[in-house]
Amino acid sequence: MNEKDLLKKLNNLKNIQPDDNWKKNYREILYSQISAGAAVNKSESNLRTIWESLAPGRMFISMAKPVWITSLASILILVVGIGGVYASKNSKPGDSLYIAKIISEKAQLVMTFNEKDKAKLGLEFATNRAKEITQVLEESKEPEDKKGKQVEQLTQDFKKEISQVKNRLTTIKAAEMNNQNKEEEPEVFGANLGRNDQRMEVAEPIKPEVKNDILEENKPAVIATTTKENLNSPDKALEEAEKMFDEKNYGGTIDKIEEAKQIINKEASENGQVKGVSETATSTN
C-alpha cells in the first residue's frame, strides 16, 4: 500500500460521524445549559465585532509592546551616548574615546544656531586643543615621533578653530552694524504699527518728540559699547592668544581665549540690556 492510498483510506474515516438525532438533541440541551448558567448576552453583528476588535483600546495594547521596546532601546542608546560623551571629555589624541569627543563637538556646533554661541563654542574647542597639546606633551610613555605628529595635528586644528571664530566675529559685527542702521529708521514707524486710525491721529503730533527722546537716551549707550569694543575687542585677545600659542605658551593661550570669551559674553549682556531698555521705552507709547 502506497502513501497515497493510505492517506485516502485515512480520509475515509471522516465518515465516522455522531448520530444526527443525538447531535440535534444535544444542541438543544447545550443551549439550555449555557442559557441557564450565564448572563444573557445579545448576539453581536459581525461589523460591530470587527469594529470592536479594531478599536483604539485593543490597538493600543497590541501596539504598546513594540513601542515600549523601541522606547527602551532608544533610552538605552541615549544613556550610552551621553555616558560616552562624558567619558570622552578628558580624552586626548590617541585615546579610543577621542573620536567621540570630536564627534560630540561637531554635533554641538551643528545644533547651535546663534552665531555668537557658535563663536563661543569655537573658542571652547580651541581651548580644548590647547589643553590637549599640554596633555600630549606631559605624556611620558609616548615616543617622541608620535607626540610630534599629534602636536602638529592639534596645532593645525587650533588654528582652524581660531580662524573660524574670527570669521564668525566679523560676520556678527557686520550684522550688528546693519541692524543699528536699520533700527534708527523703522523705530519711529514701528511704534505706530498695530494702532487704529483714531489713536494715530491723536498720537501723531506727540510721537516724534517721544521717539527722539528715546533715541537720545539710547544713543550714548550704543556709542559707549562701540567704543568699548574698540578698546577691548575679542579679536585682539584672540590675536594675542595666537601669538602666545606660537610661542608655545599654552597656559597663556588658554587664559587669553578665556578673556576673549568673557568679552563676547559682556557684549552680549550689554546689547541685551540696551535692547531691553528700548523695548520698554517703545511699549510705554
Binding site: 455522531p18 444573557v40 448576552n41 448576539s43
Partner: peptide, 25 residues
C-alpha cells in the same frame, strides 16, 4: 472566537455545529 470570548451563546452553539463532528471522531 471573539464573539465567544464575549460570552455570546449563539456563537458558541455555532461553534458546536462546526466542531462536533471532528471532535466526536
Amino acid at each position: 472566537l471573539y464573539k465567544i470570548k464575549k460570552n455570546d451563546k449563539e456563537a458558541f452553539v455555532k461553534a458546536y455545529d462546526l466542531y462536533i463532528d471532528q471532535l466526536y471522531r
